[in-house]
Amino acid sequence: MNIGAHYNYWVAIFLMMTGFYVVITHGNLIKKLIGLNLFTTSVFILYISLAKVKGGTAPIIAPGIEVYSNPLPHVLILTAIVVGVATTAVGLALVLLIYDRYGTIEEDEIRLKDDSL
């Protein structure tokens, strides 16, 4: 079996699982958000890997070029990146509010303060 044939997908899955692990194990809210970003980016890589055509080039029409990569996933991911940063900003704003209210961004300390109320 050729490793190159599926390597991209496997690394995308590895990155996705690393992001997932960061999200579920670490209690720091900012680190959780960065883990979520890892997760998102792995999806981007998977999509772009699907779009690649062997021997192709960037989908900008130029004379003398026959094979182009698939432009459709590029469009989806391009918009997803900008939307991703906008939603990350919303998450960070929530983190700031939580810090205002609780004075900490650690999940277990927040839970402790909730219990003591």
Binding site: I48, S49, A51, K52, V53, A58, P59, S69, P73, V82
Partner: peptide, 11 residues
């Protein structure tokens, strides 16, 4: 390297 120049630019 995977031909997605627009996406790379945005990222």
């Amino acid at each position: 390297s995977m031909d997605a120049v627009d996406v790379a630019f945005t990222e």
